[in-house]
Design a binder for these strands. Structure first.
Lengths: 148, 148
DNA sequence: ATAAAACATACTTATTTAATAGGATATTGA
DNA sequence: TCAATATCCTATTAAATAAGTATGTTTTAT
């Protein structure tokens, strides 16, 4: 399934924050932008969504920035992506409901609902802490292992 | 996760075929089009993909049409959607690989790969036969139950 | 021969994604 | 107070993808 740039930027940003800024210290978007190579202006939109999702809090003004609202082990990938991705579960349209409601029903119940449940439970299990640990483990490894 | 119109049309079509045309009898796109309320011209494109994916075979000329290549219990939703959907697993682009390869690695390994596995295994388990049974069960039910 | 069908290609339109632009607002510190 | 540094807000643009049309050509049964 396709995760959009917005979702990937959000996840990468939040991993970076968890890696480096534990003690209530905020980080600015410019720093994240430079560190990860993401447009700062675009990051603003991403963080607007993250804030609405209550994953980060902001400090305005000079010396301001963002910090994680919760500890990394209490933030799941599902939390991050639902805050930011438009079509992680968005699939409301009817397909053949008017003329073949029983087919519509079967598709929804057996396929789409099962799919959503699977996505949800898979992403729920992975926390920011897991991601930080995996990234630290990788730092020591051979770079050739990077591409699977 | 969002399944495109193409994927939903393909699935609905193939359910319809499994419902009504068991004994080697072909069905035309016009009939499917009329029965399900889908543009016939668009269906042609969908069936071109289904054929490439070896889910249906075609009979050209008058009295021609399409039939399922395999028995309904041997066709999974995953088969149908992979034949037709462009971005069921399509997610090759790098996000922050250049500047933060360890973050890229962690996202891929812990989040995206887990997601793909979950999607794959969920859709693999549901067969066309399951969908037909569910739709027949629904026919008897109260129509009010339709929207969950 | 003719009608009915699949098959093929090109085109158009609408929607979504990605990114940019230009400011408004708030806060710190000199 | 003022300048610098941030977040915050809204609108716009550009590119990509999705959705659907249009117009044929081939093939085959009758």
């Amino acid at each position: 399934m396709r995760i959009s740039a917005k979702g990937r930027y959000a996840l990468a940003s939040v991993i970076h924050m968890a890696q480096h800024h534990h003690g209530g210290e905020s980080i600015t978007l410019i720093k994240i932008s430079e560190r990860l190579g993401i447009s700062k202006i675009y990051l603003e939109q991403v963080f607007s969504l993250l804030k609405r999702g209550e994953l980060v809090t902001s400090v305005k003004g000079a010396q301001g920035g963002y910090l994680l609202s919760r500890a990394p082990q209490q933030v799941s990938v599902l939390d991050v992506l639902t805050a930011v991705e438009t079509s992680l579960f968005d699939r409301t349209e009817d397909t053949v409901a008017q003329r073949a409601p029983e087919i519509e029903f079967a598709m929804r119940k057996c396929a789409f609902q099962a799919l959503d449940d699977a996505v949800s439970s898979a992403l729920m299990q992975v926390t920011l802490e897991d991601l930080v640990l995996a990234s630290e483990k990788h730092k020591g490894d051979d770079a050739a292992m990077y591409y699977i």
